[in-house]
């Protein structure tokens, strides 16, 4: 099976004094569903940031979808991000845009046709049960609803890689289940690789998944 992520002796740090991830080796198969767990401050989100290129490797190598992220050019990074869907714990929705426009963002960036964009957004709004809220602004929505919008945005352009940073962190049962269903659907139907950073793996998972745990700067697969 093709590897979508390959890390060799990967080290990550925000400053010279403190190494968050220390010389780790791991790989993730294309089309797999992966959970990354670990205690608070263990480096889960840091690892995720490095996968979408927001944090460059301090040492070692990190290859994502064939792109070496150490010393990657802005153009190559943009290309990689165009095929990646990201869900942030704090949603990161554009406040001054409507829900509809927020979901459109990756489609606009990828240069989709207007009619295709509208059709895709309508379909996603239905999926996340927010069709009636399309014209509203993020601040008019609850946390759960905002996260569903962020989820729809991450799936809008049918990405090959979906990264989610604690996507159900502060959500109610209903919204959490909806998010997990969407992530499972993306992996199952779209064959996207899904990497989720979380504290707890939901018991309701109906598909096979891999589980990595980060502890003291090292990563190991939980079997």
């Amino acid at each position: 099976m093709d590897k979508v992520i390959v890390a060799e002796n990967l080290s990550l740090s925000y400053s010279k004094d403190e190494t968050i991830i220390n010389k780790v080796n791991f790989s993730i198969d294309s089309g797999s569903f992966v959970f990354i767990t670990g205690a608070s401050g263990s480096g889960k989100s840091t690892l995720l940031k490095s996968i979408y290129g927001a944090l460059k490797p301090t040492n070692g190598s990190l290859v994502v979808a064939g792109v070496e992220l150490k010393g990657v050019t802005k153009a190559k990074l943009n290309l990689l991000r165009k095929h990646t869907g990201i869900v942030f714990q704090d949603y990161k929705l554009v406040k001054e845009w409507t829900i509809e426009k927020n979901i459109m963002l990756p489609l606009i960036i990828n240069g989709y046709d207007k009619s295709v964009t509208q059709h895709q957004v309508d379909s996603l709004l239905k999926h996340v049960r927010l069709k009636h809220q399309a014209g509203k602004y993020p601040k008019e929505l609850s946390g759960g609803e905002q996260q569903r919008v962020a989820m729809a945005r991450a799936l809008a352009h049918n990405p090959v890689l979906i990264l989610a940073d604690e996507p159900t962190g502060n959500l109610d049962e209903y919204s959490s289940q909806l998010i997990w269903n969407l992530l499972e659907g993306a992996n199952n139907q779209l064959k996207a690789t899904v990497i989720v950073v979380t504290h707890h793996i939901p018991e309701s998972m109906s598909i096979d998944y891999k589980h990595f745990n980060i502890e003291f700067g090292s990563i190991h697969e939980v079997t």
Partner: peptide
Amino acid sequence: IMSMFGAP
């Protein structure tokens, strides 16, 4: 946010 989604 736009940068995270690869906007030039």
